[in-house]
Amino acid sequence: MPLSQKLRAYLQLMRPANIVTAIADILAGAAASGSILLITNGEAAGGDDSSLINLLWLVVATIGLYGGGVVFNDVFDAKLDREERPERPIPRGDVSVTEGAILGGVLLVGGILSALQVSIKSFIIAVAVALCALLYDAWGKHQRIFGPINMGLCRGGNLLLGVSLVPAAIADYWYLSLIPIVYIAAITMVSRGEVHGSSRSALWGGVGMYSAVIVSLAVVAFREEAHWSALLFLGLFASQIYPPLFKAIRYAEPQFIGKAVKAGVISLIILNATFVSIFASALFGLLVLLLLPLSIGLARYFAVT
């Protein structure tokens, strides 16, 4: 097999469009901890760049953690995918199960070691995220109730990884991780009908959980006195997640459910941009939003689900 084809297969396993959303998680956590403003003010004053370096380490960490997690998803699902997802790299024969496991292991270990460069707390959170990802891949995804929560814990932990740039901030802002936990749990619940279709009750449950996320973000925005900018971001967020989900409810067919899931995953960037606008500024939120076209562009070439 040509090297270029092998590399593309590895990238397909890692789901690059999704990794961009994980980077946005780190930026959202960094904003909540005050690190983004600290970095900006430090550079303006000619100070040291340690905060920026630590932020870059955590970006590398989340690439490894998320990439490794989704690679192991396909490793554990190799047998099932031969029947339901034959287009994926492992059942297609482009990557063996052993090669996938090695790639996933290298990515997870690399992510954990990168987090260790920042602090012990970052290291502990990274280990927890890696374990949650493996638990989901091997067992959690098959659990009707715990599965969506398990997947949500991975994202909530990823946000906390960003907050850990200022370790003391974890105690003040740990509750923010509940928002991505609920949101990802909703996407995971909706995605279960992507292959064979889904009941409308589960899809309506997704609508309710999406609404809880929006209300929670609005409450956080008012608490932080970031009313108007956050509302604009929330309006954009709602405009991206609801229409495809309501279409999926109308038809309850796999192709529409898949589009709803894809929209939910990519809209994580808007969710994180909202966090950044609340805790840093609307301008920084817009900068994070620039990751959206990158993720959408990658999603045209690499599968999101």
Rank of each mutant, 00 (worst) to 15 (best):
R144A: 14
A260H: 03
A32S: 09
V195T: 13
I270A: 15
I120C: 00
L245I: 08
A44K: 14
L292T: 08
I63S: 01
E225L: 13
T21Q: 09
A126C: 10
A186P: 04
S239W: 04
L271P: 00
L287D: 10
R192F: 05
I23L: 13
L217N: 08
I102M: 07
F284N: 03
L298G: 06
I187D: 11
A280R: 02
S122R: 06
D74T: 10
H142V: 00
I187H: 07
W228H: 12
F279E: 12
S199C: 03
Y183I: 04
A44G: 02
H227L: 11
A303D: 08
I170N: 02
V276C: 11
N54G: 11
A128G: 13
S239F: 03
L161K: 02
M14R: 01
G67S: 11
Y10T: 01
V59L: 15
D25Y: 05
L58H: 06
G197K: 02
I184V: 15
I249V: 14
S198D: 12
M1R: 13
F233L: 11
A61L: 06
L52A: 14
T62Y: 01
Y210G: 01
T274Y: 07
A186C: 10
I149S: 08
A248W: 12
L113Q: 01
K247V: 08
V95S: 05
V118D: 03
N158T: 14
S267M: 07
A218Y: 12
L298T: 07
L286E: 11
V71K: 09
R85E: 08
S267Q: 06
L232D: 03
L231H: 00
A133I: 07
T98S: 13
E253Q: 13
G64C: 12
S191R: 08
L289D: 13
A282K: 00
S267A: 15
V219I: 15
A169T: 09
F72Y: 15
L134A: 06
L113P: 01
A115C: 04
V190W: 11
I170H: 01
A133C: 04
L236W: 13
G152L: 05
G206M: 05
A101W: 03
R250Q: 14
L290C: 14
V95N: 06
Y136H: 11
M14E: 09
S35L: 10
G104M: 02
I36R: 00
L135F: 15
L298I: 07
Y242L: 15
I125D: 05
L27I: 08
A78W: 12
G104T: 01
E43Y: 10
L232Q: 00
A202G: 00
V109E: 08
E83R: 09
